[in-house]
Nucleic acid binder design. Structure first.
Lengths: 162, 162
DNA sequence: AGCAGAATGATTGTGCACAACTGAATTGTG
DNA sequence: CACAATTCAGTTGTGCACAATCATTCTGCT
């Protein structure tokens, strides 16, 4: 029966949604306890900066899968908090380069404790985390393909999609 | 080195975050194609109403793990769209009962196609979906426990937590 | 050189989500 | 019965996320 599918579906979409919000809440808690003054998405952005050094907004958006409408205000808040500076690239005036301030770079040390705390909060083993990560990565890629295709696969139409 | 943990962690938290947004995008796409006039969270709320019938805001919040600050405006939009009605309970004037309008109930039929489309978009088998659902459910429960405890487990302190 | 088109980031508008607080109604306790 | 504590929904403020649109800058083409 179709009803059966409907219930299973609710459970699956809902499980991802709920897990994401539970993760957000856990990060909020940990970030608050460590008093880093960062929200979860801000922490993600800072992590890219810690790992890669200065990046453009475009690169940051690609890394985090976020567009400028989300990143612009987020980066302004990080700048207002003194964690980053933003400046137009001299080479290409369209680009804005985001770089850590000394204060922002210094934050990295305290942030080292975040992964450990989160690891405990998840209760997952390293293998469990990797298995879950793998499944989620595949799922995300498949869903992204569906969306960028604009709908179901229609057999093998052209190949170009879009 | 700790750096190793940091990278793994980024991948895990990020994978959940990205999967959730990819799921959202897929639902947006499907709901738009079917022209249901619902957002993804609104669809979740409607699904509870289709399955359970009239519920209070409180019950809806428990089912969806959302608080009144999220549900109140969401339900107002559903009411403005003609999908639900809201009325104070006669038995307990504090409670608001949410019930489907005939139009909202009628929407269920077209919504039957949503799970099928999403099922195709995920590319998961029934077993794969169930396995993922199981892992996410456990993860969510563990994270929730961590947050409601207010921090790490501190060995076995009292038992009351909080 | 000059112009059409693309790339980049910002802005605006809508909606979701949570924290903190408010106000009304109910329940518990003395 | 009276009063404190609790429950429930709503409101306000902050922040994330995406769609659509815009201005500026760069690039390709003639």
């Amino acid at each position: 029966m179709g009803t059966d599918h409907l219930v299973l579906d609710r459970q699956l979409c809902f499980a991802v949604h709920a897990a994401s919000r539970a993760f957000d809440a856990a990060y909020r808690q940990v970030l608050r306890d460590l008093d880093l003054g960062l929200t979860y998405p801000q922490y993600l952005a800072m992590m890219v900066l810690w790992e890669r050094g200065p990046v453009t907004v475009k690169e940051l958006g690609l890394a985090l899968r976020l567009d400028s409408g989300t990143l612009s205000p987020l980066l302004k808040r990080l700048e207002a908090a003194g964690h980053v500076r933003r400046e137009r690239s001299a080479a290409d005036e369209r680009s804005v380069i985001v770089r850590l301030t000394p204060a922002g770079a210094a934050l990295r040390e305290r942030a080292q404790q975040v992964p450990l705390a989160i690891g405990r909060a998840t209760g997952l083993t390293r293998d469990g985390a990797m298995a879950l990560h793998g499944m989620l990565g595949e799922l995300t890629a498949t869903l992204d393909a569906y969306v960028s295709r604009g709908g179901p696969a229609e057999d093998q139409a052209g190949g170009t999609g879009r």
